[in-house]
Design a protein around this nucleic acid. Structure first.
Length: 618
DNA sequence: ATAGGGTTAG
């Protein structure tokens, strides 16, 4: 037998390396991986691209970009695959390690490596400038991926995210064979840019839809506050027997949150439990938020307490929910518990803690946590935190101190910060400051009708009627329409909407009879219409029905008609409840012996036995 | 032999 030694063939590394590479897959921690890594090096595989890509890929899955980069830099001849793997690792990571994706890509080209079909999707999604997208688009074509759906879908996505609808649409329209992902990307692209109707046109053109497509459209309606249409689409989806997955569940629960539709929200939550849909942290947060914002704190706490693992967002959400209900002390207690459980609070946590203080009049506590946030947790105050402090102080009547915070904040105050001060000026009757702040706010947000209304209110409360008229004229000249106020109440699975003086409801006649009866019975216990809510006078259709037929009163009467004694009425209002209705609600709760929970734009009012949970502090 | 796109929180 002749010896084979002269032509001994080394088996390819992937044959010999298989066991160790498979071992890499079974690692569960980085420490384990590092051991395997050193074993790989000892086996002489340090130049084996395949082995190294497995290692890098593992780092990628464990958000260890830093280590991935270190490994990459030791590889003598990385191939396209390795470049792709590292790009992906960077894209997935939250690491702060400085890394220039585009430099890396050009380096790859300099090594005479050609990008393949896996290169562009990641690269395109890593763009931070519009120009980069344009350049990469050219490369996609140049390297022959002009018909590659993966590359093109990513281009569509990124063009939309830079607000370039035309570029995105052009790519989509020219695609030879767009797939379901392309269509869905276009729908959510339009959605994020607020083009709901265009999104819907595209949706209707789709011949094959799956859960993701339905969800994209439902989410589109939800994100653009068109909850009713989200509900309708959901019904249709159920008829067509499309799977209700966790994404659709989450979107619909948000829709319920938007409308205050507790019953449907409960049903979907029940569905999630029945069908064993995985309750991940996002879905859990959505559910908790729904219960909080639909006025059911007990249920929210129950879900929250039942979570096996609570992430920051779950804590944030629950703390925010308590704040919304004016339960400042409870919110602070929960925050303390969060710290004990060693969950690291973030900027949002403190927004919620400070909001809780503001809504409960906990001025000293608010000041304390404002300092605490930076000193103990290293969270630098952002605009929102200053906004909370302004709100906290101003609401408590310390307008001068609020003004100080405003002047001292390092960034320029935006409309929401000034708006907080403005609202407080109204409550505490500081007309001088109110006027100057009001004018600033209007100019900062010239399209926001609420700001004009607030300014007009300030003028009205000191009898400056000429200026009130001036504000109204300014709105007309600029074509700003007051956002119409409406209230909703869910009954027998339907969401009923009411506008002031509206007569569209099928039971309008009975409702108005009930309103008259109700007004009469609260008059007997001292109700006097309070015309202070002059803002409603700014709206044509409300002028005929000042105060007495505000949407919340109509919704309550409908609720009284349709529910049994002792049942709680839950009303959702899109604007803030006015002073007159607030007073009326207190009396109704007493005369009719009903709990009434009103969620307005800012917070909850829980009326019971003649009193409100906000203690008139809102 | 290894990698890929769209949909959900505060």
């Amino acid at each position: 037998m002749s010896s084979t030694s002269c032509c001994q063939v080394q088996p390819p590394s992937y044959v010999t390396a298989t066991p160790i590479l498979r071992a890499v897959e079974t690692c569960s921690t980085m420490a384990e991986l590092k051991q395997h890594h050193s074993l790989i090096l000892r086996l002489g595989l340090s130049t084996d691209n395949h082995a190294m890509s497995r290692v890098i890929n593992f780092c990628s899955k464990h958000d260890q970009f830093h280590y991935a980069l270190k490994v990459f830099n030791t590889i003598p001849n990385p191939d396209t695959f390795l470049y792709n793997t590292l790009l992906k690792s960077h894209f997935n990571s939250h690491s702060q390690t400085p890394f220039n994706v585009f430099l890396f890509y050009s380096h790859m080209l300099e090594q005479s490596l050609t990008p393949n079909s896996f290169t562009f999707p990641t690269l395109i999604r890593s763009c931070s400038f519009y120009k980069q997208v344009k350049q990469l688009h050219a490369h996609v074509i140049k390297f022959g991926f002009g018909s590659d759906v993966f590359a093109l879908n990513n281009l569509i996505h990124v063009y939309f995210s830079f607000g370039s609808l035309d570029d995105a649409r052009k790519v989509f329209d020219k695609m030879p064979e767009p797939n379901i992902v392309s269509w869905t990307t276009v729908i959510s692209g339009y959605s994020n840019c607020g083009h709901v109707d265009e999104a819907f046109r595209v949706f209707e053109l789709m011949s094959h839809k799956n859960s993701a497509s339905w969800n994209a459209m439902i989410a589109c309606f939800v994100q653009n506050n068109r909850f009713k249409e989200a509900f309708d689409l959901f019904k249709q989806m159920r008829v067509e027997k499309v799977e209700l997955d966790k994404f659709v569940a989450a979107s619909m629960i948000s829709a319920c949150t938007g409308l205050g539709a507790l019953e449907l929200g409960k049903w979907i939550h029940g569905y999630v439990e029945r069908t064993g849909i995985e309750l991940d942290s996002k879905l859990a947060t959505t559910i908790i938020d729904m219960y909080c914002k639909c006025g059911c704190l007990e249920k929210a706490l129950q879900v929250f307490n039942g979570l096996p693992r609570k992430g920051v967002s779950s804590w944030n959400c629950m703390i925010g929910g308590l704040a919304l209900h004016g339960k400042g002390e409870d919110a602070i207690r929960l925050f303390r518990e969060m710290e004990r459980e060693m969950v690291v609070p973030d900027a949002i946590t403190f927004v919620n803690v400070l909001t809780a203080c503001a809504h409960s009049g906990l001025v000293e506590e608010g000041r304390y946590y404002f300092r605490y946030m930076t000193e103990v947790h290293g969270v630098e105050p952002a605009k929102e935190h200053y906004g909370c402090m302004v709100d906290l102080l101003a609401r408590a009547g310390r307008l001068d101190e609020a003004k100080e915070v405003l002047d001292e904040m390092p960034m320029s105050p935006d409309a929401s910060v000034l708006g907080a001060l403005l609202g407080a000026c109204k409550i505490h009757g500081n007309l001088e400051l109110g006027e100057s702040v009001g004018k600033r706010v209007v100019e900062l947000e010239p399209g926001n009708s609420g700001r004009y209304v607030m300014l007009a209110n300030i003028y009205a409360s000191c009898g400056k009627w000429n200026q009130v008229a001036g504000v109204r004229k300014m709105m007309d000249d600029r074509g700003v329409k007051k956002e119409p106020g409406f209230s909703m109440i869910e009954m027998e699975g339907n969401v009923n909407e009411f506008v002031a003086g509206g007569r569209d409801h099928p039971l309008a006649k009975e409702i108005y009879v009930k309103v008259d009866e109700m007004l009469e019975s609260i008059r007997l216990v001292g109700y006097v219409p309070d015309p202070d809510g002059i803002l409603h006078d700014l709206v044509e259709e409300e002028r005929e029905n000042p105060l007495l037929h505000h949407s919340e009163k109509l919704a309550i009467c409908y609720g009284l008609l349709k529910s049994k004694r002792g049942e709680t009425l839950r009303i959702t209002k899109n604007l803030r409840v006015c002073k007159d209705c607030h007073q009326a609600c207190k009396l109704i709760s007493k005369v009719y012996d009903r709990d009434i929970i009103v969620r307005d734009r800012n917070r909850f009012h829980h009326f019971s036995n003649g009193e409100c949970s906000c203690k008139d502090y809102w």
